[in-house]
Nucleic acid binder design. Structure first.
Lengths: 233, 233
DNA sequence: CGGACGCTTCGTCCGCGAACGCACCGTCCA
DNA sequence: TGGACGGTGCGTTCGCGGACGAAGCGTCCG
């Protein structure tokens, strides 16, 4: 075993060093599978071009694909790939020029409010949940980033199963692009997100990664975490 | 505020998408400042070439530079930059072809045994320390990654000051390239490393990032963590 | 069965950027 | 006050790769 040489690192970075491929990976950060055509339209590039890019990303191990009929579905390969894109995105973020059109402004506002980040919750909602959990002593951030005993119990009380795997941390921080603060990721973050969508606490807006809080969700989150979810509507 | 677009992410990734620049960043992961000439020799490239690369990396915000006389010293700009390179390196790692010469084999063995990773300890030693701390209940990894109360006290007992800053976590996991496991990073990891070097528990081998355990260090680590440091010699 | 559709393959064009050598500038030392 | 040395700027070369369009292939649906 030897230290990774520059060429391997460069080859991996090169996959993300193109605006189109970077746009693809950012789009896939919503954690779902997109078709090649959707990504072509989303990045504003031809069908043949996106096809080549998806092939490169897949062969590079960043994307996983699945073919269904005449569709090619791609998604981020694993949590490691998602973490890489996240890290890059949060480090690249510091541009803050105002959006130009009302339409994109609305879309950005929705994203800033609540969205998925790969498999967990982000945006103001994600941060508010994380803060509430910290305030209630379910999560500790002052000595690192970990669930407490009370936190473990909380998940149990709400029948949210926590898979304890060796390869993936139960709780880890993820830096939020819009809030510039950390929110809950890892197995627990994913479980919470899955539960919130399953129990209809949250629903997706259209087909994107933006989320909306339901009435039931506002009530449930108010009870479970003392969160004033109305302000996040 | 809006989501980072592909071009920003791509521009950042492009900085690391070149073998020479990637080699520079990996070298700088030892946390120290290198001169332009050292990096040119290290990457096997001309002086003018390395100069241009260092300028690009600095302007991109990944490197910080400092001029002393006719020397140009560069180092990684901040913990964020280091984390980015780490993440990329650990994701890129899976090549394991054996080293070709005895010389590089020796060097790799030394690196695998004990080294710095930006500002904290890595290699078998770093992982062993992290494991020992976990075993002794100073560090919890099963619910995330955080120091325990006992852990905080341990740092106090050994007069290792822990700066509690808001922007940087006290403890976070860092994936080790050689061990494929996590070791302690963050403020606590940095403080431990600094203390170990200060107290001469460890010394640098030559000018690289490899470390050697001193007799005093073996004894101190044995007492403080019950670590059998002899096996790491 | 035919046509629309989603994706892929191929050929082509074109621009970016990495590397080098050389001339040059400032610094350090004998 | 030279001369060696570390680093910079410029001009040149050259290969890589991203984009497009056209043609082709399999899939779905009317």
């Amino acid at each position: 075993m030897h230290a990774p040489d520059g060429s391997r690192l460069a080859a991996l970075a090169a996959l993300l060093a193109d605006p189109t491929r970077a746009g693809v990976c950012l789009a896939l950060l919503d954690g779902r599978a997109w078709t090649a055509g959707e990504l072509a339209r989303h990045t504003g590039v031809g069908a043949s071009t996106i096809s080549a890019h998806l092939t490169r990303l897949t062969e590079g191990g960043l994307l996983a694909q699945e073919r269904q009929g005449r569709h090619r579905y791609v998604r981020l390969a694993d949590a490691g790939a998602a973490r890489l894109v996240e890290t890059l995105a949060s480090q690249a973020a510091p541009a803050a020029d105002p959006p130009r059109t009302l339409r994109t402004s609305r879309a950005n506002e929705a994203l800033a409010r609540a969205r998925t980040c790969y498999d967990h919750l982000a945006g103001r909602l994600g941060c508010a949940l994380t803060d509430a959990m910290t305030r209630r002593g379910l999560l500790r951030q002052d000595t690192g980033f970990a669930l407490t005993e009370d936190g473990l119990a909380w998940f149990g009380d709400h029948s949210i199963p926590l898979e304890r795997t060796r390869s993936r941390p139960l709780a880890r921080p993820c830096l939020d692009w819009t809030e510039r603060r950390t929110h809950l990721a890892g197995t627990a973050g994913a479980a919470l997100c899955a539960h919130a969508l399953n129990a209809r606490w949250l629903t997706r807006i259209g087909s994107g990664r933006a989320l909306r809080i339901t009435d039931r969700g506002a009530q449930a989150l108010g009870e479970a975490l003392g969160l004033d979810a109305d302000t996040l509507r």
